[in-house]
């Protein structure tokens, strides 16, 4: 039986009269990895910084392990580890001095050496913060978020500046942290990261929660979970293409035919090929990814900000479908 450790209800925050977080609700269960996705400027950082007690909400209630992040911020800091999207340390503070200093802030700190080692920081211990590259700074901030042995950790863009190997190492580290019972709230722009790590993800778009599900759940909710593409040996009859069951769109990309649809569509395409005696070169059947689901869920954002470009594009797609 799990329990909510982070509860956010009706969270609202405005800047200059504009609501940047507009009535967001979610709960994070103890021991889970909870992801927050959303386009730039969607309000993710604002929301998690309210959870951390760094920003004061205009409305709504937040409880983290039963604590009010604003009124009980001091108690909260003892059990909450934080990696901010943007922050710095003293330029001349070395990596080991930073870890040692932050260790002294917490009542029951962890030994920072194993953490530093997992992040490869053991080779950088004497390097001053100001001379670290972006990725190394980020690794140090991940270590600092963990050094206090927190019950809950909030990462705002966990691996944005990291190289692919460091990213995978960090994922392993985070899974290990979770396995030790720690709850993790993480903001990310990497769908692969969300799919790999998160038990559930919330998608925030223009200050509102637009979806909340497991990564697999989000993908399966997409209207076209499967993409079929191939080069037909002869053109296929338009009428049959238009009649494919479950097909959401049929597009031509040069000599390739790209069909978005469902499992039913896949079967129908194979039958259609056999019936017409057409062979399919370079046949690919690809399941939709979280990327596709994300783009589908947040499409309105793109339309609102770049209305004309999107309209023109969809008009093109219609033209292809209607009159190839």
């Amino acid at each position: 039986m799990t329990m909510a450790i982070v509860e956010v209800k009706g969270l609202r925050k405005s800047y200059g009269g504009r609501a940047v977080v507009d009535g967001v609700d979610f709960t994070v269960e103890e021991g889970e990895i909870f992801g927050i996705l959303g386009p730039n400027g969607a309000g993710k950082t604002t929301a998690v910084e309210c959870v951390e007690g760094l920003r004061v909400p205009d409305a709504g209630t937040i409880r983290v392990a039963g604590l009010d992040p604003v009124r009980q911020r001091r108690e909260l800091t003892r059990i909450l580890g934080v990696q901010l999207q943007e922050s710095e340390l003293q330029a001349k503070l070395t990596v080991s001095e930073a870890l040692e200093l932050y260790r002294t802030f917490y009542p029951e700190p962890a030994d920072w050496r194993p953490i530093a080692e997992r992040l490869g920081l053991d080779t950088m211990l004497d390097r001053p913060f100001g001379k670290l590259s972006g990725g190394w700074k980020q690794r140090l901030f991940i270590a600092l978020a963990l050094v206090g042995r927190p019950r809950i950790v909030v990462f705002d863009e966990l691996t944005t500046a990291l190289d692919p190997r460091a990213r995978r190492d960090t994922w392993k580290l985070i899974e290990g942290v979770r396995d030790s019972g720690v709850t993790i709230l993480l903001v990310t722009h990497f769908m692969e990261e969300a799919e790999h790590l998160c038990d559930r993800v919330a998608v925030i778009d223009r200050g509102k929660l637009v979806a909340l599900d497991s990564p697999a759940g989000l993908v399966s909710r997409s209207d076209s979970p499967t993409t079929i593409s191939f080069r037909p040996s002869r053109p296929l009859p338009d009428a049959e293409l238009d009649a494919l069951p479950g097909a959401v769109s049929v597009n031509r990309q040069g000599s390739r035919l790209v069909i978005n649809g469902t499992d039913d569509t896949v079967n129908a395409v194979i039958t259609m090929l056999a019936r017409n005696g057409v062979t399919a070169a370079e046949l690919r059947v690809v399941d939709a990814t979280l990327d596709d689901a994300f783009l589908g869920l947040t499409a309105r954002e793109a339309e609102a900000s770049a209305g004309r470009a999107v309209t023109a594009e969809s008009a093109d797609a219609d033209a292809v479908r209607g009159g190839h």
């Binding site: 800091t77 901010l84 922050s87 710095e88 340390l89 003293q90 932050y102 802030f105 917490y106 206090g148």
Partner: peptide, 15 residues
């Protein structure tokens, strides 16, 4: 210290 977010980072700790 304030401009570069050093104070802010410290505000998230018990110090």
């Amino acid at each position: 210290y304030r401009e570069r977010g050093i104070l802010r980072r410290m505000r998230t700790t018990p110090a």
